[in-house]
Lab assay of single mutants.
Amino acid sequence: MEQATVKWFNAEKGFGFIERENGDDVFVHFSAIQGDGFKSLDEGQAVTFDVEEGQRGPQAANVQKA
């Protein structure tokens, strides 16, 4: 698992990007966020996640709020 920071997340559209420590951004979809209830992330929030290869490149999976 990697630890990184949420760059931005649009709760209405259900997706955003996580900024990795190496500077690369990773796409995150609300369905990858672990937990119950409304799944959203806040800008600047610390998260841990795995990286999977998606249809359009790397994307976050198993996202957990740190």
Results as ranks from 00 to 15, higher is better:
Lys39Met: 07
Gln59Met: 09
Arg56Asp: 07
Ser40Phe: 13
Arg56Ile: 07
Val47Asn: 03
Phe30Ile: 06
Glu21Pro: 13
Asp36Gln: 12
Ala4Phe: 06
Phe17Met: 08
Ala61Asp: 02
Arg56Ser: 09
Gln59Ile: 09
Phe38Leu: 08
Leu41Glu: 02
Ile33Asp: 02
Glu53Arg: 10
Val51Phe: 09
Gly37Met: 06
Ser40Pro: 02
Ala32Arg: 05
Val47His: 01
Gln59Val: 10
Ile33Met: 04
Gly35Asp: 08
Gly54Trp: 07
Lys7Trp: 03
Asn62Leu: 06
Gln3Glu: 10
Gly23Ile: 04
Met1Gln: 14
Val26His: 00
Val28Met: 06
Ile18Met: 05
Thr5Arg: 14
Ala4Ile: 01
Gln55Ser: 13
Gly23His: 08
Phe17Thr: 00
Glu43Pro: 15
Phe17Tyr: 06
Asn22Trp: 10
Phe9Pro: 00
Glu53Pro: 11
Ala11Ser: 12
Gly14Gln: 03
Glu53His: 12
Ala4Leu: 03
Val28Leu: 08
Phe17Lys: 03
Gln55Ile: 14
Glu12Leu: 14
Ala60Arg: 00
Asn22Cys: 13
Asn22Asp: 10
Gly16Lys: 00
Phe38Glu: 07
Gly57Asp: 01
Ala11Tyr: 11
Lys13Ile: 09
Phe27Asp: 00
Ala66Arg: 12
Phe15Met: 05
Phe9Trp: 15
Gly23Arg: 08
Ala60Asp: 02
Leu41Ile: 05
Val47Arg: 03
Glu52Arg: 11
Gly37Ile: 06
Gly23Val: 03
Val28Thr: 03
Glu19Ile: 15
Met1Pro: 13
Phe9Ala: 02
Thr48Arg: 11
Ile18Ala: 02
Gly37Ala: 07
Leu41Trp: 04
Val63Trp: 00
Gly14Asp: 00
Asn62Gln: 05
Ser40Thr: 14
Phe30Thr: 03
Trp8Asn: 02
Ser40Leu: 08
Gly23Cys: 07
Asp36Leu: 12
Val26Leu: 15
Val6Ser: 02
Val47Ile: 08
Met1Gly: 12
Ile33Gly: 01
Gly44His: 07
Ser31Asn: 06
Val47Cys: 05
Ile18Trp: 04
Glu21Arg: 12
Trp8Gly: 02
Val6Lys: 01
Gly35Met: 12
Asn10Asp: 10
Phe49Glu: 01
Leu41Ala: 03
Phe49Lys: 02
Ile33Thr: 03
Lys13Arg: 11
Asp24Glu: 13
Thr5Met: 10
Arg20Ile: 08
Phe15Asp: 00
Gln45Pro: 01
Glu2Leu: 14
Gln3Lys: 14
Ala60Pro: 01
Glu2Thr: 11
Gln34Trp: 10
Gln55Lys: 14
Gly16Val: 05
Ala4His: 05
Arg20Cys: 08
Phe27Lys: 01
Ser40Met: 10
Asn62Phe: 08
Thr48Ser: 10
Ala61Ile: 13
Glu19Tyr: 14
Ile33Gln: 02
Val63Thr: 03
Glu19Lys: 15
Glu43Arg: 15
Phe27Val: 02
Glu19Gln: 15
Val26Gly: 02
Val28Cys: 07
Leu41Pro: 03
Glu12Cys: 15
Asp36Arg: 11
Met1Arg: 15
Glu21Asn: 11
Val26Pro: 03
Asn22Ile: 10
Ala66Met: 15
Lys7Leu: 05
Glu52Ile: 15
Ala4Tyr: 06
Leu41Thr: 02
Glu53Asp: 11
Ser40Ile: 11
Lys39Phe: 06
Gly54Pro: 03
Arg56Cys: 13
Gln55Thr: 12
Val6Phe: 00
Lys13Tyr: 10
